[in-house]
Design a binder for these strands. Structure first.
Lengths: 165, 165
DNA sequence: GGCGACTGTCTTGACATCGAGATACCTTCG
DNA sequence: CGAAGGTATCTCGATGTCAAGACAGTCGCC
């Protein structure tokens, strides 16, 4: 089946036959798919009264395991936002009672963000919902294809995640 | 090589061994990679004094071919933004002299957005820059792997692009 | 011990995006 | 013809994000 990127690439080949636009076959699909996923996630989370950004922060803390706390800096690297954004997110989540801010006992510059009981419950509930939705989106692919796709994508993400950037 | 999603999945398996989190192997990588690409594009375009959103609109018009014009509605489906956002984008691009707004002769509700000569030049210049950068990011992959990856991604994007949604 | 570079977090101001609704026009069909 | 419903674009207010810089605290090294 054809997608929008096929049309996009065909258009470039017609307009700029001098250029090799093959990289777009991969990376434009990644960008567009991410945008579609964002919309789908926003819809799925709205049933739980959660925004995608709230989910990202709560689940990062949930994954950390007892006592469900991380520094703002650790949250930055997991969520790929800037520090100003994270301060703002923590403020809003704290106001909703889903996280609380504690002083870091070992570094007086530092802060620890800890999940409240309610925050933990919300994270657990919405994760199940997200997985159900993602399974539906991946439904077209066999297990072997999903494994292959994950491996190829890992090769692209690894440099970003490991080299500081 | 390990990436951040490997760590994320391992953490979930430890914290929630009851759940099958395999879908995250694919879709979390897509989302994270898109975010990294966004940052990289922002950096690449800043050399041309262009924002990513400006690039998206200008190149959509460029791809359309002579006379380089599309309706705001057509631009929406290509760029995946809302109509309010597109109005705003066109306003700003028009103020910079990169596009102009013309009345649609066949539908008085409608508008046509046309690339100016300068807009066209900027689109062409920045496309070359983007392709160079993307080639570097894809450098790790063989041609066969890129083809395989594109095909797998197409299976995921096609439903979004073809079924209205 | 204390100077200088570095780190972690927060503050601020600018700005792009979204969602909902308004407006004008078109189309279909009785 | 004219009403009802659909479509294309724009308006407006709220909000989330970023970039740059401020500030407090820490660490390495002479």
């Amino acid at each position: 089946m054809e997608d929008e990127v096929d049309r996009l690439v065909a258009a470039w080949r017609r307009e700029r036959p001098d250029l090799d636009v093959e990289p777009l076959e991969v990376l434009s699909r990644v960008s567009r798919l991410a945008r579609h996923l964002d919309r789908a996630r926003r819809l799925a989370f709205s049933e739980h009264n959660l925004e995608p950004w709230e989910f990202d922060v709560l689940t990062a803390l949930r994954r950390a395991g007892t006592p469900y706390q991380l520094s703002p800096g650790q949250l930055l690297t997991q969520t790929l936002v800037t520090s100003g954004t994270m301060t703002n997110r923590i403020d809003r989540l704290a106001k909703k009672g889903l996280v609380e801010r504690l002083p870091d006992p070992s570094d007086r510059r530092g802060v620890l963000v800890r999940l409240t009981d309610e925050g933990r419950d919300r994270a657990d509930q919405s994760l199940a919902g997200l997985l159900a939705q993602e399974r539906a989106i991946l439904g077209e692919l066999s297990r072997a294809q999903r494994t292959e796709l994950a491996a190829l994508l890992r090769q692209l993400t690894a440099p970003f995640d490991n080299i500081p950037g």
